[in-house]
Design a protein around this nucleic acid. Structure first.
Lengths: 180, 180
DNA sequence: TTCGTCATGTAATGGGTTACATGATTAC
DNA sequence: GTAATCATGTAACCCATTACATGACGAA
């Protein structure tokens, strides 16, 4: 999760942790918040793995501001994480995170990702509809409202994914409707 | 989180852990999955706190099937958790969980909860719209799509909440539209 | 008798959070 | 010089997960 996001931003340009957090929250803040307590350990871990390195060599005078740069191994790791498709990777936030970096993915792989999420949602929808039939009588009005709203949200996301898939196959991305 | 859900179900009727998990996943499965690894420890913790007790006394022959029953202290804890309104409690899943048990809440408290979530969403919307203006030029088409979809989802939830609030003040809950 | 599922639990792990502690740099 | 904010990090905790282990019970 964090690793993908960090590598994705470092791909654009090298920077230090504090800056990274600001950009992370700018780009992904609407569905995900990162804290220092997870970011710094993550950077150290990535460094140990050789996925990032310090632009200033490790033992130098410059102590504050550790500027990190992505390595070749980091690029490979990023590419791998971006193509993830385990059952876990189809959930909302993980999928959204990968989508945010789709521009680094081959078009066919993008379609594969979009269809993966689409299938996941459709499966969920089928499950809920079945469970509604089995237990509608036992459900109170609020639980029913919650379920109906959830169903609606998922149906909408499927429509949205369909548009993205169509755009991917066809003429390119539709412009996002301007907010308000 | 888990505690509220467990107490809410035990309020309806006493039962053992395994049964509890099945009902939990039936009622809340569309946005939340519970596993045994968290459920059993949670039950033990609630027992230590005196919020639930075993229907069969602790040291009896009946070893498998521990039937739990909510206590008076448990009822108080439940009522308290249901009225939670810290910033943390306004997030999606925590809010949804409380909504699922709204029938146990006084109408005014329901409205208060609904308005709390509404305000939270509105604040988020304002933040995003501001961040869009500041950085639209730096955003690629996919990030933009993600943001637009997120905005749309939140706007829709606000409309839904408005309906629920209106219903609460007025003639009662509207029927959930049947799926399809 | 053996298989499925009912039933309970523990241990290791994951992936984050908050709070705390520290120090450098910049603006006034 | 002093306050704000930039910058890094650690420690303790939280709340869940998965994997593992165990055993009862009913049906074939």
């Amino acid at each position: 999760m964090l690793e993908l996001a960090v590598l994705g931003l470092l791909k654009e340009q090298s920077m230090h942790g504090y800056e990274l957090k600001k950009r992370l929250n700018l780009k992904l803040g609407h569905f995900w918040q990162v804290s220092f307590g997870s970011l710094y350990p993550a950077l150290n871990k990535l460094e140990r793995q050789g996925a990032v390195e310090r632009a200033y060599p490790k033992g130098e005078a410059r102590r504050s501001k550790n500027v990190y740069r992505i390595t070749a191994a980091g690029e490979r790791l990023f590419a791998e994480l971006l193509e993830a498709s385990g059952p876990h990777d189809l959930e909302q936030d993980r999928f959204a995170l990968r989508l945010a970096f789709f521009s680094y993915l081959r078009p066919e792989a993008r379609i594969h990702q979009l269809e993966g999420r689409r299938g996941y949602l459709q499966m969920k929808l089928a499950d809920f509809r079945a469970s509604i039939k089995n237990s509608r009588e036992r459900m109170d009005a609020y639980t029913e409202q919650l379920l109906a709203h959830g169903l609606d949200e998922r149906e909408r996301e499927i429509k949205w994914l369909d548009e993205l898939i169509a755009a991917e196959r066809g003429a390119g991305l539709p412009k996002a409707r301007p907010a308000e």
